[in-house]
Design a binder for these strands. Structure first.
Lengths: 197, 197
DNA sequence: AATAAATGTTAATCTAGATTAACCTCTTTT
DNA sequence: AAAAGAGGTTAATCTAGATTAACATTTATT
């Protein structure tokens, strides 16, 4: 079961580092497959995050609920992306974010209890995770700069260009939340863009 | 020379993972000590970043120059912090950021040519770097949420509380740039805060 | 000590984007 | 087919923060 389901994960890992058959088996013994329905929560803000998830199919949003009850989306995850509240996972303290499925979603879960053993038994996987996180950090820093140096319209055009697959699967009001603007203003931007052409 | 100068680095690493004397020696053989004067550049936007630097003393700013010539500060680094353009370093492509010294600054440099060897020879250091980057990523994500959910005044108060040491060493106009606001508006915020008390 | 350069403040005016509120599709459910 | 819900649009009004510009203060340079 896990052997078939985890194929996309193995393919993904092999783009970074080569794994021997034995290493693949060791890994698959330590992870689990799970299916969520649309609207289900993978993590709830306030809970302790027990898993890092690799998305096999579907789509999730990671968001923070602020003191005013406003939702701020920090990322979307589709096939071949990761999702979790890493801060909560690495420190085992209450999560700052919720992760909710926007579509029916299949994931491979790396549990907190097993992740150390995975690193110890397959050192190359520790390298792999280091590289993944380095890239995530770089992307996050760039997003901060964009939010300071680009107008809302420019940020929206960047998002469309960079993540065309995500843009088409997700309601506009969630994209607005991701960009840090209101859905009304995104609507205005879109009608402006139509006029531009 | 490097033995004395690198003491803060070894102390810092030992807070995360224990190193044997032999591992320490292996590490020190692969890193170099360097001193920069105030206003000197450690990295220039457009160059390829050859080093990740651990700050022994002093203070740096990491900033991006946008197409309008505007400077956007993404981070400050003081003693016991890291500085580099990680995106440029890991991919060996032109840097998006410059790193400039705000004070005379001493660093320990990890060169691109040696970092792989360090990881291979001292696997525990790869774990250490993974953990450092995980934390940096978490902090970066949290900063994005703050920039969306807090007013400029709230963000400034958060910065003061979180980094009191940095706040006192750095000109206000750089803090404004870090917060993504103008120096004039920060000045207004500060006079408001005085009235609040 | 005088001058210049860097940093910080205040106030008037302007604007990108928020807020509010009414209305318009589509889907989905009954 | 009617009703309800989810998602999206438009327009009027409002506001946090930008811009401009003049001036004040501190620090460095001669």
């Amino acid at each position: 079961m896990i052997q078939e389901k985890a194929q996309p994960l193995l393919r993904y890992i092999n783009r970074y580092i080569p794994l021997t058959k034995s290493e693949e088996d060791k890994l698959l013994a330590k992870v689990t497959y799970r299916k969520y329905l649309k609207n289900q929560y993978i993590i709830q803000q306030g809970d302790i995050c027990k898993y890092e998830c690799f998305v096999i199919s579907g789509c999730t949003k990671t968001f923070h609920l602020d003191t005013e009850g406003q939702e701020h989306i920090v990322m979307f995850s589709i096939e071949d992306w990761w999702t979790s509240d890493m801060g909560s996972f690495i420190t085992q303290t209450p999560a700052d974010y919720s992760v909710q499925c926007i579509e029916n979603t299949e994931v491979i879960q790396f549990s907190y209890d097993n992740i150390e053993a995975i690193y110890d038994q397959i050192p190359r996987l520790e390298r792999f995770f280091r590289q993944i996180i380095e890239r995530a950090f770089v992307a996050s820093q760039k997003r901060i700069v964009r939010s300071f140096s680009l107008t809302a319209k420019e940020q929206y055009l960047y998002f469309k260009k960079q993540y065309p697959k995500i843009e088409q699967r997700i309601p506009q009001y969630m994209i607005a939340s991701y960009l840090g603007i209101t859905k009304e203003f995104l609507s205005k931007i879109k009608s402006q863009i139509v006029l531009d052409q």
